[in-house]
């Protein structure tokens, strides 16, 4: 075998190896895919009203200042999450969910339902990671699968357990946020983080990962 030929064969082998690695990476990094999307949608459909023929009459008192039961802690054993939950609202300027800057904490949407609510979506969002702080509390959220349990501890000390029914991935420009921030429909816990391809220039992920869980 000539030297030239050996070199050419080596190039072929190296090329094949590179392609194989690329193929493996492509397969491994494929989005985990959606599971339970239909169940998540069903939970969001409005509950039928039960108003009878009688006209409801109520005293016209000023609204009371009853506060929802806010979650203070979140545990997801299957992905080894134990995180503090902070009450958060929206960013004044962008109107975006005000995810806690500290990536080991997650944020509960304080304008939405609390843990005691009998309808609607309790929303907790957290960082998948950050450029400065590394991996966030919800780094492995995309690994959650139907049946996994999520436990939220309320400020009242009560623990409430939820079972994952769906995990979905949406392009941020197409995610139906109204459904995940709904205050009607079946009571449910919605966990949100970022995912999908990362745009290194804009420093943002293309997608949101959304996990829906039902009270056990």
């Amino acid at each position: 075998m000539t030297v030239v030929n050996r070199g050419a064969l080596a190039a072929v082998a190296a090329g094949a190896a590179a392609l194989a690695v690329a193929a493996v990476v492509a397969v491994v990094s494929r989005p985990a895919g959606d599971v339970g999307a239909e169940q998540a949608a069903a939970l969001a459909s409005p509950t039928p009203s039960t108003s009878g023929p009688a006209v409801p009459v109520a005293p016209g008192t000023l609204p009371d200042d009853a506060e929802p039961v806010r979650p203070v802690g979140l545990r997801i054993p299957s992905i080894e999450v134990t995180a503090r939950v902070d009450p958060v609202g929206v960013d004044e300027r962008t109107q975006e969910f005000d995810v806690p800057p500290s990536v080991d904490q997650v944020g509960w949407y304080r304008y939405g339902p609390g843990l005691e609510a009998e309808s609607g979506s309790v929303v907790i969002a957290g960082h998948v990671d950050s450029a400065e702080q590394g991996r966030g509390a919800f780094y492995r959220l995309r690994e959650l699968a139907p049946g996994d349990t999520v436990t939220a501890t309320g400020e009242d000390g009560t623990e409430r357990t939820y079972r994952v029914v769906a995990r979905e991935e949406y392009d941020k420009t197409k995610i139906p946020l109204e459904r995940y921030f709904a205050r009607d429909g079946r009571p449910r816990l919605t966990l949100i983080t970022c995912g999908g391809p990362f745009d290194a220039d804009a420093r943002r992920y293309r997608d949101n990962i959304v996990v829906t869980a039902s009270p056990v």
Partner: peptide, 30 residues
């Protein structure tokens, strides 16, 4: 009520599931 306009929750890129430029370079070289 209105929903927030978005949920920005990642700036690190460690969880990137896209195929970066290095992937295309590798595949192209191969």
């Amino acid at each position: 009520h209105s929903a927030p306009s978005g949920v920005p929750s990642g700036t690190g890129g460690q969880a990137d599931t896209g195929l970066g430029t290095w992937w295309y370079a590798l595949a192209g070289t191969g």
